[in-house]
Amino acid sequence: DLSALRVEEVQNVINAMQKILECPICLELIKEPVSTKCDHIFCKFCMLKLLNQKKGPSQCPLCKNDITKRSLQESTRFSQLVEELLKIICAFQLDTGLEYANSYNFAKKENNSPEHLKDEVSIIQSMGYRNRAKRLLQSEPENPSLQETSLSVQLSNLGTVRTLRTKQRIQPQRTSVYIELGSDSSEDTVNKATYCSVGDQELLQITPQGTRDEISLDSAKKAACEFSETDVTNTEHHQPSNNDLNTTEKRAAERHPEKYQGSSVSNLHVEPCGTNTHASSLQHENSSLLLTKDRMNVEKAEF
């Protein structure tokens, strides 16, 4: 173990290094160091905050020279020094078990990766560091076993998940096959086929009936047209017969005018059967003409 005197000496050296690497504005270890034209180094955030307070150039807090945003430059070497100082402080805390008085939040800088452990060898070769390295080497064999167990647990979990997924996939297939086998029997399929065939026959029977009705309507229309044509021909046949009657009536009127007047009046009210309204109107006109002729003949006879 380190003596108290040596611990104090190391602590004083760390404090001196820390004062050199402090920012003059925030009085902390410089984060993202930036250098000016006057070779003074500050935190990048502190300098941008200072420049944004005034429009135009501002003055350096140490030498009062003008500073602009374009004049600022990043210093990589200074950032490396800060990183190495942080590593020294971490090693000091691990070796002594004491917390550094002016320690900052170094938890963000710590890294437990194997590459980081290899890099620590180049920091300080001390008894405390050696003991700590031995402890780490002793704890390393235990870690692979834990990793193997965790991997086995994960693989077993994956296997159970896969088996569950396969079961879920197989179950719908089985149910679907069961439904297909038990849903419709052979008799049901035959009945469905016969039902479809009967429906098709009914459709075939319905369509000819409609065509037959249309044919019957067409035949009825044709018969009505033929009947009207026969009526017209009958009226045409009746007209010459009426003319013959008129000639006979004229002759009778010349011989017996008194008797014919009474008979002509009675004939006005008689309509021949089986004739249309057109034929009756023609008869009325003929009878009126005959009456006028008879009157003329009677007057001539009187004179």
Rank of each mutant, 00 (worst) to 15 (best):
57 P>K: 02
23 C>V: 15
8 E>K: 11
100 Y>L: 09
278 H>M: 04
79 S>M: 05
26 C>K: 15
17 M>F: 11
68 T>S: 05
145 S>R: 02
254 E>W: 05
66 D>L: 05
154 Q>W: 04
76 T>V: 10
258 E>I: 06
218 D>K: 05
162 R>H: 01
216 S>A: 12
80 Q>A: 08
63 C>Y: 15
57 P>N: 02
149 T>V: 00
21 L>D: 15
99 E>L: 15
263 S>G: 13
151 L>P: 12
149 T>W: 02
285 E>I: 01
255 R>F: 15
211 T>N: 06
92 F>C: 15
54 K>I: 11
90 C>L: 11
261 Q>S: 05
30 I>H: 09
88 I>V: 06
163 T>G: 09
247 T>M: 13
256 H>N: 05
111 N>Q: 05
163 T>A: 09
252 A>K: 07
157 N>I: 01
189 T>L: 14
165 R>M: 08
282 L>R: 05
260 Y>S: 13
16 A>K: 04
14 I>T: 13
294 D>K: 06
211 T>L: 01
75 S>V: 09
165 R>P: 15
220 A>E: 11
131 N>S: 12
228 S>W: 00
125 Q>E: 03
246 N>L: 03
166 T>N: 15
189 T>C: 01
79 S>I: 12
28 E>A: 11
110 E>D: 12
125 Q>S: 04
273 C>I: 00
94 L>G: 09
148 E>F: 10
84 E>H: 08
217 L>W: 14
145 S>E: 15
170 I>L: 14
50 L>M: 07
49 K>E: 06
251 R>S: 12
167 K>R: 13
233 T>L: 03
127 M>S: 08
1 D>N: 09
86 L>Y: 05
245 L>S: 15
250 K>V: 13
34 V>S: 08
281 S>L: 02
50 L>A: 05
295 R>L: 01
18 Q>R: 08
207 T>M: 14
233 T>I: 09
200 D>L: 00
212 R>M: 04
192 K>I: 00
2 L>Y: 14
87 K>P: 00
217 L>D: 14
215 I>Q: 05
253 A>P: 07
83 E>K: 13
32 E>C: 12
106 F>I: 08
73 Q>Y: 04
187 E>G: 02
218 D>G: 14
10 V>C: 11
147 Q>D: 03
15 N>H: 11
130 R>P: 09
81 L>I: 10
37 K>R: 03
124 I>T: 08
105 N>G: 09
246 N>S: 10
129 Y>G: 14
69 K>N: 07
158 L>H: 10
17 M>I: 07
153 V>N: 10
84 E>A: 09
204 L>R: 15
144 P>K: 10
140 E>T: 10
271 E>L: 02
46 C>L: 15
162 R>N: 13
202 E>Y: 00
66 D>E: 14
